[in-house]
Nucleic acid binder design. Structure first.
Lengths: 193, 193, 193, 193
DNA sequence: TGTTAAGCGAGACGGTACGTCGCGTCTTAAT
DNA sequence: ATTAAGACGCGACGTACCGTCTCGCTTAACA
């Protein structure tokens, strides 16, 4: 398909992504995208309701899910997952995009829906890792997958987004050790509380 | 002290907080603050370098650290900490402020410093909780406090900021169970990696 | 043509002229013109580079050249010209506009060009009067037209702008008598100096 | 007298004159004068009611009257007067100051009074020149001195302020020839008109 | 010789205008 | 019917200057 619309939208998306990644979110504006893409502002607004929507579209386009490792063990799956992750050097850009997305989502319900879909897509590999561990008996099959994802991803999110830190291999190992220990420990029925 | 400056700054801060909490961050602007506070725009700029700075000032003013519980055990300390936290209903506002802060910090170095101080202030109670647990022998005294904080706070941050969820008492208990299990498990020297 | 631009520019010019004539130049500002005209400030700046340019545009729009009398004689031509002129009661306003224009021109090169064009337009009738007198033999055909204009208009400019005076018919007659006498006298070759 | 007030006023005047002459009227402001003079803004306002007053004070301080030549003849007196004048290269600055003064006077009655005094002071030499010519019989003793001054100074004012031109010696001679011719011609009783 | 009041510096205040940028809407003409 | 081109109203941005207003500190003159 090469309709005029599609060509225009493609140009818009390219220009938007370039602006966002090269010059940061403060350089991102409909006017700037129009200038850079050569597409008229009117046309942009025909395809994106407002600036936030284009921003979110662009942000989410740059957040690509990880592949799902399958090494046969929880600990090594997680290592594989986060090592790939940790090898990325565009952590700063990623943080910018993620923060922008969270900020938009928190202030705008429709963006929040987009975020929901993105989170689903993004956490699917992790859910699969946990499900495999559960089927292997490493993890309590009764453990809610959402909770598991939070237990695993949460510490990294905190370090990444709040502390803006990176992990040394030692730190990464320690973190994973404790996360895996927490996950694999069978826990007393919490209904006692 | 009741100098003219201090009166003006107080008025500015009040108006800024009102605007931010009542009408959301999109209603926040220097002009709006000037109008609402009755303080001249010039005066605002005399005390705050730019709009972002006033925004960050306002956001951080509304993020108040938790008290540090001391119940004699890690698990019960955490319960106390998060139950207080969880009982709050202004989670949405808190999320907005936090996301705004993270978003600003990620795009502006000077804001990032402010965030750093805030994080320090905010995580101090949690560090104390962990230190007490270490002195009691519940937690490995060799565990880095930053990592510990990430292991504890991370899952909640993920749930809170990314998933925008609240926890049922059961979920909360399960989460704490696994977190505590992870923390209290002595872990083999990670130098093996 | 009734394009949007032209409508806007017309509104701007009207409001600017009203402000300038009614409340004086100190009441003239882009913001005030925007308020009164109902045209957005942005739009004003789209058509006028800055406040001074709009001011000069407005000042010059209100300076309209005189018609050229042709009575058959220099003296009576001048009488006709200045009687029309002298009958005007908006001398004060005219002085304001003229002084504003001179002041702007003297401090800004681009305004000076505008002034040059205005002066050309404004002195054309007088040049014609002199040329006719030269063709009739009343005035030395070798006399530079610029000098002639200065000789004629200069005294009135001085009285009008510096002295802020008006002329009684007697005074006017005396002035014209001497001016005409000066012009019609054949003068020795000035190369003697 | 070297009271504190006088020292302050002197500093203010110096700074004001420097600013006005060096950087032009657009650089002239109370704040700038305060900065440059080291005198507090408060003190400036204690001695000058407002910015315009200080501006006019400064402008008039830089306009110094010419000496009165006395060569024994009208034509040579005028030559002497205007040659001195014409030799000055600060014509541009003079034009700026004069235009500023006229502009202020035309828009503010109290400034207009100041202008009146300045004009009187400035035209006194010319009045004296004419009076001498009248006593010599060169000029009609019945000619009003104000009119005479306008006839003489007017053409130069026009050329100077409106045309921003300078005169070649030839042009100057021609101008003076015609002016003198106009002045020395006995004119029929103008009551005929 | 002290005391007191005027004048001073320092600088914040409310206010208005400046000129710029981005938003989202609208109109016109070309494709 | 869709697009390009670009003006429009709106409103925030951050800056400069206006003239006013405390404040203490310093002088000078008076008691």
């Amino acid at each position: 398909m090469n309709t005029r619309s599609e060509i225009a939208v493609t140009k818009i998306r390219h220009a938007a992504a370039e602006l966002l990644l090269a010059d940061g979110p403060s350089a991102f504006s409909i006017d700037a995208v129009a200038r850079r893409s050569g597409v008229a502002k009117t046309t942009i607004y025909r395809h994106f309701d407002n600036a936030r929507e284009l921003l979110v579209d662009t942000l989410s386009a740059t957040l690509r899910p990880q592949p799902t490792p399958n090494t046969g063990g929880l600990r090594s799956d997680l290592e594989a997952f986060f090592q790939t992750e940790a090898s990325t050097r565009e952590l700063d850009e990623l943080a910018q995009r993620l923060a922008g997305l969270l900020y938009s989502a928190v202030n705008d319900p429709s963006t929040n829906e987009v975020l929901g879909e993105l989170v689903t897509a993004y956490t699917t590999p992790m859910r699969t890792i946990v499900e495999l561990a559960q089927s292997r008996g490493e993890v309590d099959p009764g453990l809610d997958l959402d909770l598991a994802v939070e237990l695993i991803q949460g510490p990294f999110l905190f370090g990444f987004l709040v502390r803006r830190r990176t992990y040394s291999p030692d730190d990464l190992a320690t973190l994973l050790d404790h996360i895996v220990a927490g996950l694999t420990t069978r826990v007393a029925a919490s209904a006692m509380d």
